[in-house]
Amino acid sequence: MISEVRLNQTLVLLLVAVPLFGLIVDQPYLVTLATRVAILGMAGVGLNLALGYGGLVSFGHAAYFGAGGYVAGILAHHALNVEPIADWPILISGTTEMLIIWPLAMLFGAALAVAIGALSLRTSGVYFIMITLAFAQMLFYFAISWPSYGGEDGLPIYVRNRFPGLNTFDPLTFFCICLALLMLVLWVTSRVVGSRFGLALQAARQNAERTTSVGIDIFRIRLTAFALSGAMTALAGALYADLNRFVSPSMLSWHTSGEIMILVILGGVTRLYGPVAGAGCFVLLEQFLGGLTEHWQFWLGLMLVGVVLFAKGGIVGLLTRRPADA
């Protein structure tokens, strides 16, 4: 058994070592894999704030992931075609600057989460799961049937977006950007969870009646957490679009929601680094099983059923034997 702090350090070290190793042995796809892990991990960290710490089982986080992706894609699309997004009442043009795209993606993700959350947080339990799923699906169908940005075929991004002073085309540089953002998101999450707000949020998860009776409006607490969660996942979505240089409705599909949820649960809910461990495992499994058989999803499904039925607490729980956070 190892301590959770040691495990987290090991995880980050591995995440740094894999792409370096990839460059040394001239296997550049390892850099891309590690970048995927960092980005999916970030999406999972975002979901974990709502699902783990807040107890809000959202099955619609693809909405924010995809929204972030489309913000990046649409801005770049307009910048490259040199046509403004809007010319009235003010001129809005596209951009390929990451430093503008990221905050916009997060803002958009948070706004979307507030809108969806305001409706779905009126309910709880199974209703909440189904409603978050349904609203994400609504965006999915909207993206498919709206022809301006590629509709069903998706929207290619012909250049990698830019970051001042860095060559973002270099896979290792792009990986470092993603890793730095992941660490930032992890740090913010740890602060949020340990704060007054985090105390109220976790209290609301465990005993809503009690939390209300001490004068805390749990609806607004939850809505705030949902917005933060949406913003983080949207940032991951923007990076994912940049990595693939492509956005499509599949980023909004419920399979994506399910995958982000798998990462979180595989890693262990309410564990800060759980989603990163989960993303690592998921990408590894995808590569390993995918190399063995075309039907790897069949075996992945069987494994997941096994994890749910027999291994509560996820990977981090299994390795540290520590019960999850209160």
Binding site: G194, F197, G198, L199, I216
Partner: peptide, 10 residues
């Protein structure tokens, strides 16, 4: 002050 997201509560 339960919307304060920074600063350790404990």
């Amino acid at each position: 002050g339960h919307y304060r997201v920074f600063g350790r509560a404990m």
